[in-house]
């Protein structure tokens, strides 16, 4: 199950407590060529809404916000070498694998359909 936040992060749950966090395809397209991802570190903990990193293109920058309370299990180091992977496939090239601290917060996020509507309105 994939959930989306209003700030365009997704969390792709792989079981009840673990998932991958990245940015949506919509956000990746808006940013353009990604040139840098400021990655968190494993074991860092973030509260819902807290910024855990940043993503930059040539002429834009955006903070990344934790969609739920979480702890970082691992980060996708490949993005440090080639941030453009995000443009290539933002779902496959997640930013970090996390442990969700409070699964009930997932209910506050949007599912795929709701997020598509949300983006259509924002554009």
């Amino acid at each position: 199950m994939i959930y989306y936040s209003k700030t365009h992060e997704y969390i792709n749950m792989i079981n009840d407590t673990e998932g991958y966090v990245g940015i949506s395809a919509f956000a990746a397209k808006q940013l353009g060529n990604v040139v840098y991802v400021d990655l968190p570190e494993a074991d860092d903990e973030f509260e819902q809404g807290e910024d855990f990193g940043a993503i930059e293109s040539v002429k834009a920058a955006s903070d990344l916000y934790a969609p739920v309370d979480l702890e970082v299990i691992e980060v996708n180091e490949a993005l440090a070498d080639d941030p453009r992977l995000i443009n290539a496939d933002p779902m496959k090239n997640f930013i970090m694998k996390v442990e969700v601290k409070d699964a009930s917060q997932l209910e506050e996020l949007m599912d795929e359909a709701a997020y598509a509507d949300f983006c259509a309105k924002e554009h």
């Binding site: 040139v35 840098y36 293109s57 002429k59 920058a61």
Partner: peptide, 12 residues
Amino acid sequence: LQAREQHIRREK
């Protein structure tokens, strides 16, 4: 590295 700068980051 202009993404660091005030005109892009604004209040951040």
